[in-house]
Design a protein around this nucleic acid. Structure first.
Lengths: 205, 205, 205, 205
DNA sequence: TATGAATGAGATTTCATTCAT
DNA sequence: CATGAATGAAATCTCATTCAT
């Protein structure tokens, strides 16, 4: 049962590309390096990807595809919104700050101007979907009378913003000496903050 | 009163550099373009800046210097922490999403791997200082009995995260068709969220 | 009765090669294209032809071989030279400007410097033979007292030159908008010119 | 009185380009070689010519421009057409087969498919103009009752064809061993042929 | 100080050719 | 025989940087 070699080869390349692009960005990563890291010749690279841009986009797309399917939640039923939101924040945070994924926002943000297609894709398929899920959760909470919120859209952005910062922190600032983040604790604290706020409950009681 | 030509020249260059780097990132911006945009020869550029990297760093530094002095608040006295925090979030958000500054986080995030010095500098002087101020405000609120918060550090990150997302949204996603953000409203909503949380007050009353 | 696959294959390749080389010249035609046009793999090409050059030469040779046998006339007997020459010019012109052959001079002229062997071959076997035939016809006319000619060699070149121009015109200039040539009429007029000249007969009478 | 260096530099390059392209054709001539031959760096080449194609076209254009001005004859007055035509054939032949110019037709013919613009230009400005002049001469001869000619256009092509063959002969076949042409004698013989034809004058007398 | 001109050192991309299967 | 896959060796073109004037 011989495994087809192409997929393997292709994923070797994408892996090497991910390593390169994530470490040095688009421009500073040479096709030569990627080829060497993938264990093939530069020309073999071009057999599978028509250009450096195409390789870059393929790599990002593959990463996103890898992440998306598991991000779509089912119907919420009668579960309490608080629990759902806590779980989603924990899940999203874990996923977005994982070693393989954390650099994606950085790359999208960094190269977005030169790759509008990619930025659009990421906006539509990742950010948009993430926000959509959060929004559904918040609406669920409002319907159940659990949550109170004047501006849903903005609140959702606050939620996503905290998670995104974690990814950026890990990839941009930790390598230059920032205090490492405990992502689990951070996700929990972030959930606490957006759920309970900073103002003391007793104040309004 | 002889016109000081050098400073003017210098700021012309920095302005041109900012325009270029903010539009196309570090690698895709050519020294030629910057020189032309600044109205001088490429060689004249090198009389003022030793290298492309030096110019890039100078531009970022200048921007940060421009922004920092006004960002440091004095002692809080006996003011309510809620008001201070609202004001600071509004201020920080306005500043960080302003036309001249919004691209800075994007550039820092995008080129951070290739410019560790810059990332460190930005972390120490901007993010760090911003977080420090927020933390002081939160502590002030805790001392006054206004706030309740289990994990101060993380809560502060949640606060900054929301603001940062606005800047990224504006520079990365709005150009590719994302719904534009009303930064003032967003800042206010963000302040609401982190202050009050999503859970209904009456629930705990 | 097993189908002879190799000859068919070979001529498929030569046909594809002819199409490619005639349309784009030697350098701009890729082995890949030829293989695809011939319906085989690139590697299969190399089973039949050792190199691109070899394929090119084989293609030209085949074309020439196809044309030459019919170009060699027998003894002229007692036929009038004028008729023979008219017929030969018509024949040569028709052949050399035919769709399949017209590009050959162009390619030979264009790539002659890089393929001296080919240029030599074409000179010896095609131009040389053509000139030889013309010369024999002219000598025949002189012997019969039909023709008067001071410099036979040069006259023959004048004859061939007109025919060659037609082929070049068709392949080089017609594709870019030149007025199309009616080769039959042109051959006839060319024969008229070289036979009668431009000066009025009555003048010398 | 310092002479501007650019024109000199530019013509150095064009000279080197002419040498390269004429010897090896477009594809086989490397920019590196041209640069070295011109005594400058490859990058300096690109300072003056945006691409290899642009350089190629500039070189051909310059050559053509060099040749054109002197090719335009004045009014013919009352001179005998025969003398004018003889002189023009001699002139055109000498010019077209001169060491600097002879390769031009070869290059145009060889690369015409890949440079349609150039082929068109050459057709319009060189071939067209040459044919135009010949046609004017022939018409002049017809008006004066000197010439008899059924098909002027075709006759003119016969005239030009003989001259063109000389250039092709020199550049394509002489390098591979063809008998060298004495262009002066050839031009004269060609003029004899097209003027007098091959048929004996006395025959019709 | 200012600049037009020049360049060294790559970067991406191409393609004829080979080889294991 | 046939081929998919691979590659070595360029070729074009770019750009940060320098230097003579």
């Amino acid at each position: 049962m011989p495994r087809p070699t192409v997929p393997t080869r292709r994923s070797d390349i994408l892996l090497a590309a991910r390593a390169g692009f994530s470490a040095r960005g688009f421009a500073a990563t040479r096709m030569d390096d990627i080829a060497r890291a993938a264990g093939i010749s530069k020309a073999a690279l071009y057999l599978q990807f028509a250009s450096k841009e195409a390789l870059f986009e393929a790599m990002v797309n593959e990463l996103i595809e890898t992440m998306l399917p598991q991000a779509a939640p089912a119907d919420f039923g009668d579960l309490p919104a608080e629990a759902i939101l806590r779980r989603f924040i924990a899940f999203l945070s874990a996923r977005i700050t994982s070693a393989e994924m954390a650099f994606v926002p950085r790359v999208i943000i960094g190269e977005g101007a030169n790759f509008p297609e990619l930025a659009r894709f990421y906006h539509d398929k990742v950010i948009g979907r993430g926000l959509g899920i959060v929004e559904r959760i918040v609406r669920h909470g409002l319907e159940r009378g659990e949550f109170a919120c004047a501006d849903i859209t903005q609140a959702c952005r606050s939620i996503i913003g905290g998670v995104l910062l974690a990814a950026i922190w890990k990839t941009t600032f930790e390598p230059v000496g920032a205090k490492p983040i405990d992502t689990t604790a951070m996700a929990q604290a972030h959930a606490d903050t957006v759920l309970n706020g900073l103002l003391r409950r007793t104040e309004t009681a």
